[in-house]
């Protein structure tokens, strides 16, 4: 699928593990432990509720019942294990790891200790996952200057700082977001009205942002604005703050010229910023 290929390309450039359209760790069948014989009738009723809900596919209800049972049964290890399993299948990975760890703490000599430790390790080392979406139709999403595809976008960014740009027929929004390791996140980009045939954006490492006028043309970073077709050479924000100018061509027609500015790597710290630029011609979905 086309957008999977793009996501993989993004992963390759940002150093993330290549991610398919579905999350890693899925599908993974349910594993359930039986109730402990010492549980009270009330706790057992909760347990049975949870099992029946789980088998019916109502994982939210199953999770709720296991959580209640854990409170009733004073941290029953098997209930904790089953709770962790449901949380994992709900993709609530942080909570799943917490529950698996509590299980191991309660039964240090559990026969499946190694397997549970392996599951924890698998979850903790999974790639981070971020959903990037918004409100208007026919928008596209770019992450760190790379086109992902139509919104919503599902990406697997490496831990660290990133930028997202969401361009719609009458909107543009730019966000910077930070990704911790093995993290699931939702970057919702509110609708911000904007029109124009040029979008200028920059990496999370770029400290420059703002609006400036050069030779009668107004530029904004990050921003969306209109420029007549032709070639442009500009600094970013001010001549003094940019070690070099960047160049790009604005195309004719129903095309958006996307200009992504970054810092040249490996340069010594200095007042002016050494800039690189990547330019793409984008069309919105019809």
């Amino acid at each position: 699928m086309r957008w999977s290929v793009v996501a993989c390309l993004l992963a390759a450039t940002t150093g993330a593990a290549a991610g398919p359209d579905v999350l890693p760790l899925q599908p993974w069948p349910a594993t359930r432990k039986p109730a402990s014989a010492t549980n009270s009738t009330e706790a057992l009723e909760m347990f049975v509720d949870a099992i029946i809900a789980d088998k019916a596919g109502d994982l939210s209800r199953a999770m709720d019942r296991y959580q209640r049972m854990v409170r009733l049964a004073k941290d029953d290890p098997n209930a904790l294990y089953n709770l962790a399993d449901v949380q994992r299948r709900l993709e609530h990975y942080y909570q799943a790891v917490e529950s698996y760890k509590k299980y191991l703490a309660l039964v240090p000599d559990a026969p499946d200790r190694k397997e549970v430790a392996r599951i924890i390790d698998l979850i903790e080392k999974r790639p981070s996952f971020t959903v990037i979406d918004g409100e208007d139709l026919d928008a596209i999403v770019l992450v760190d200057g790379a086109l992902i595809g139509p919104s919503p976008a599902h990406v697997f960014p490496t831990p660290g700082g990133h930028t997202a740009d969401r361009i719609g027929p009458t909107s543009y929004r730019h966000e910077r977001f930070y990704v911790p390791p093995a993290h699931t996140d939702h970057v919702h980009m509110n609708y911000e009205e904007a029109e124009g045939n040029v979008v200028m954006s920059g990496s999370s490492a770029l400290p420059l942002a703002g609006t400036w006028v050069l030779e009668g043309h107004k530029f904004t970073l990050p921003g969306r604005f209109t420029l007549p077709p032709g070639r442009y050479q500009t600094y970013v924000r001010s001549e003094a703050e940019s070690c070099n100018r960047i160049s790009f061509d604005v195309a004719k027609g129903d095309v958006i010229t996307y200009v992504y500015v970054d810092l040249k790597p490996g340069q010594p710290e200095q007042y002016c910023k050494p800039l690189t630029v990547k330019v793409q011609k984008l069309r919105l979905p019809s």
Partner: peptide
């Protein structure tokens, strides 16, 4: 998917 996961 039968239950709420953290995405559409």
């Amino acid at each position: 998917e039968p239950s709420s996961v953290l995405r559409c």
